[in-house]
Amino acid sequence: MYEQYGDEVEFFIVYIREAHALDSPVPNLQGPLLEDPISFIERTSTASRCTEDLHLPMPALVDGMDDLVNRSYQGHPDRLYLVGVDGRISYAGARGPRGFVPADLEAAIEVELKRSDRPRRRASL
């Protein structure tokens, strides 16, 4: 999706609080074993490790330790949103993992691009 739409849509990972840190109530012992980052620098380096290890092409933005953006968008544990060109929410996925459906995001991107396409084409005529 990133390769296909990356020119027309900005993609950002918003790296938030760990979903299954070792020192959380729900540690995941099958996955990467991490204690929840306690400083911004730790979270930033964990985010870098994540994008490198998983070869994620889009840039990651690191949420502050106050989890402000996480809480504004209720993004925990994972979630997809599309912000339209007008600055309003075009697509708000349900909370993951059940609600984390990339196909829905792609459909929303198609709709959004068609919506904002018309003025662009008119301008180029």
């Binding site: 760990e18 996955g31 964990t46 994540c50 996480n70 997809l80 949103y81 904002s116």
Partner: peptide, 17 residues
Amino acid sequence: SSFTGKKPVALIFGSYT
């Protein structure tokens, strides 16, 4: 908000664990 009026922004919330 720097993208308003320019491009849509897809936000992918998540973490490594």
